[in-house]
Structures are given as C-alpha cells and as structure tokens.
C-alpha cells in the first residue's frame, strides 16, 4: 500500500508542471544560462582582461568534466536549489490540505504510508533536481570549452566516484532535512504558505544566527552549534566527504556531533508530523 501511495503521489506531481519547473528545473537551467552569458561576455572582453592579466580560467588547459562533476556535486544543496525545492516540497506536503483532497484518499491507506509516500516522492524530486543540476553543470563546462576554444577531457577515478556519491547523498540528506520543517508546518497549519515559508524563515534565521553565535563564543565544532544549526552541521560534514584532502583532527572529532545534529533536525520534525497526522481531523481541510 505504501507503493500505491507513492505511485499516486508521483503521478500527481508529474502532472503539476509549473511546480516541477520552479522547484526542480529553474535553478539548474537558470545557472546554466547565467554561466553561458557570463562566459560569452568574458570571451568578448578577453583582450581587456588579458591586458589586466586577470586569471578568469581561460587558459588553454582542457576542461576536465570528471573533476567538474565532483566539484558541482558538492554544491547540490546550495541555497538556490534549497529555496526553490521548497516550492515543490510545500506543494507535496500541503497540497492535499489546499485542494481538500485528503478525504479522497485517506480511507484507502494507512496514514503513515501517505506521509512517507510524500517524503519518498520529495526525495525523488530532489534527486531529479540534483541530476539536472549536475547535467547543467556539465553543459556549462562544455559551453566554456566551446566559447574559449579549449579541449575537453574526462578524468575520474574510483576515489572521485566515491566522493561524488557520498557528497551527493549528503546533499540529498540536507535537502530532506531542510524541507522536513515544511512537512511539519504543513501538518500543523494545513497551509501551503506555512509549508513554504517556515523552512525558509528558520533556515534564514539559522544562517543569520550562526556568525552571531560564533561571535558570542560558540565554537563551530561544539555541541550547541551542531545541535541547533543543521546548516553548520552539514558544512562540518561536507568537506570531509567531498574534498580530497586530509581532515584536521578537530573536524574528525566533531563529525559524530554534526551527524547527530543533522539526524535530529531530520527525524524530530518527521516524527512530530507523523504523530500529529495520525490523529488529525481530516474533515476540516
């Protein structure tokens, strides 16, 4: 029955083209277009830049698509993608309240299945957006090679593939953790706007709070920081799994704390949403 709920949820989302575009396609495609425009403008001004001796990456070395892929993978949970994926998440999580359609499906399945199906489809949407972002990143590199008349190479080894897979999984986790607040907001408020703005507001507040708390003496690798700021926890883990560099001892020591922080911010909203939804009066959508 979980599979039925996933199939139904996916079927409906795929037909919601505006939501699909804004949540999954806008940022990758927009970034690609911006990249091409910037490269074209840069190329048009190459003479001036050469005169200024600025390094804008227009040397004759081939563009390495394999390394570009690994580099782009580390940016998969970038603020732009998080922001716009929240649109899809809000539509998924609060759509049945907004359209008053819970009553059509609620009796056919177990309530936890219905919520977890939304989450599974959200994960699918996030994976789709991430793959599109990687593809657009590759296309941007290829366009760079074409515009600056450079060669193209592709070098990637087992270690790179491992880092690519691990940092992609970490970014997916961060995206799901971020939108989980939207799930809880949707169930509590039954409002699409709340599902959209609550994670954005909390994310923004946490982003603003991070440097202020450091100024107040909170250590970036300390328990209070990593438990209260999931973004900081993600930033602590990401370089370890992404960059091919030795990890400082203090970062290694802080890793379990960061994992616990990110886990708590993922599971606590999910558990609260499941408990509330299981007892919710769904005749008042």
């Amino acid at each position: 029955m979980f599979a039925d709920a996933v199939r139904a949820e996916a079927y409906r989302l795929i037909r919601n083209r505006s939501t699909l575009f804004w949540s999954a396609a806008f940022v990758p495609v927009g970034a690609l277009i911006v990249s091409i425009v910037v490269n074209l403008v840069t190329q048009a001004n190459t003479t001036k830049l050469d005169a200024l001796k600025l390094d804008v990456g227009v040397t004759g070395a081939p563009v390495d698509l394999g390394q570009a892929l690994v580099a782009t993978a580390g940016q998969l949970a970038n603020p732009g993608l998080l922001l716009f994926l929240t649109i899809g998440a809000a539509t998924l999580f609060a759509g049945d309240y907004r359209w008053e359609t819970w009553r059509l499906v609620i009796a056919r399945n177990r309530r936890p299945n219905l919520i977890l199906a939304k989450l599974a489809v959200m994960a699918g949407l996030a994976v789709g957006a991430m793959l599109l972002f990687l593809l657009c990143g590759l296309l941007a590199e290829i366009s760079k090679a074409v515009i600056f008349e450079r060669g193209i190479s592709f070098s990637i080894d087992g270690g790179d593939l491992g880092r690519l897979a691990t940092v992609s999984a970490l970014c997916l986790w961060r995206i799901l953790q971020f939108v989980m607040l939207g799930l809880l907001a949707a169930v509590v408020s039954r409002s699409l706007l709340a599902a959209l703005f609550v994670p954005l507001a909390i994310g923004a507040a946490q982003g603003i709070a991070a440097p202020m708390l450091m100024g107040l003496g909170w250590m970036p690798d300390g328990w209070p920081t990593l438990l209260s700021l999931p973004g900081s926890a993600f930033d602590m883990i990401r370089p370890v799994v992404w960059l091919d560099q030795p990890v400082p001892a203090e970062v290694t020591a802080a890793l379990p704390r960061a994992v616990i922080g990110l886990t708590l911010w993922t599971l606590a909203p999910l558990a609260a949403a499941l408990v509330l939804f299981s007892r919710q009066d769904l005749s008042k959508e």
Partner: peptide, 30 residues
C-alpha cells in the same frame, strides 16, 4: 478499500483533467 465515498462537494487538484483525477485515485487504490 471496499468502500467508496463522496463527502460534500468534492474538490480536486485544479491542474488535473477529469481522467487524470480518476487515474490518480485509481493508483492510490493500487
């Protein structure tokens, strides 16, 4: 699952066609 229902005036996701509404609900019933 052996019970069908219509409570008050039903509403549906506005971007779906009538056929898609029924397909979506059919999928939710497996």
């Amino acid at each position: 699952r052996r019970t069908g229902s219509m409570i008050e005036t039903p509403r549906y996701p506005p971007f779906l066609t009538a056929r898609q509404v029924l397909t979506w609900l059919a999928r939710s019933h497996g």
